[in-house]
């Protein structure tokens, strides 16, 4: 029969596992909302866009609460110091994604840049690939917890999407500065700036995935 003390420890571990899973689900949801919010913005669906911002803001707030809980429980109930430190760093890094998505959407809402029709398709594709980079990162993170060997494959996907986004960004910026459809330099610079900000989401994912690979290698015996 399992001792009472032992059961308490197992329950605490399961509680922490649940907290982490909820936190990861929040990040995945935020990235999906980001992709949809971009579509809403570009297609001029202002009401739907504002709703997405509200949802992301709520997820980010919950994420912060979850992160606080996770950090406390990690140090209270997890035992291997090395692993504990790695999980702590990873959770902290993932918070950057939530913060970044929320900030980017709010900036879109505040600055209200105008994207001409000729670049909308590529802009949406960039947003889609950035979202996919985040989704692949989430799969890599889950693999670290359950199936370490699979981490590398997911990290490869993150890198792939990041490169795709970089290519699209360069293509878009060249086009914006050569196109006669965007006559004002101020517009061109604002669009360039937003292209960079959208691409940064995949850059953040790639940076986290690189650290993740190190954690995975350390976990392999």
């Amino acid at each position: 029969m399992k001792g009472k003390g032992m059961q308490v420890f197992t329950n605490k571990s399961k509680e922490l596992m649940g907290d982490i899973e909820r936190y990861l689900e929040g990040i995945t949801a935020a990235s999906l909302h980001f992709g949809e919010a971009m579509k809403d913005y570009i297609h001029g669906r202002q009401g739907a866009f504002d709703e997405r911002i509200q949802k992301v803001t709520e997820i980010e707030r919950k994420g912060d609460d979850d992160l606080k809980d996770i950090k406390y429980k990690l140090y209270a109930f997890m035992l291997i110091p090395d692993t504990r430190g790695d999980v702590y760093m990873l959770m902290d890094d993932l918070d950057d994604i939530l913060d970044y998505i929320k900030r980017l959407l709010l900036e879109l809402s505040m600055e209200n840049p105008e994207f001409p029709k000729c670049i909308r398709e590529n802009l949406l594709l960039m947003a889609e690939y950035s979202t996919k980079a985040v989704e692949s990162l989430m799969l890599a993170v889950r693999s670290l917890f359950n199936h370490t060997k699979a981490v590398e494959e997911h990290v490869y996907r993150v890198e792939f999407y990041e490169k795709e986004v970089d290519g699209l960004e360069e293509q878009l910026i060249r086009f914006v500065f050569q196109s006669a459809d965007i006559p004002l330099l101020a517009n061109r610079m604002q669009i360039r700036d937003f292209c960079g900000r959208i691409a940064s989401l995949s850059d953040i994912s790639e940076d986290i995935s690189k650290n993740l690979l190190v954690y995975a290698v350390k976990r392999m015996v």
Binding site: F9, T10, S13, L16, M17, I20, M78, L79, I80, T83, R84, V87, L144, F145, N146, H147, T148, K149, R219, M220, V221
Partner: peptide
């Protein structure tokens, strides 16, 4: 070590539970 390495590296046990089992 060969046996334990095989078990740990191919295991799908959650990292947090593995931590508990190791202790």
């Amino acid at each position: 070590f060969i046996v334990v390495r095989k078990l740990v590296n191919t295991s799908t046990v959650h990292l947090l539970l593995l931590d508990r089992y190791t202790r």
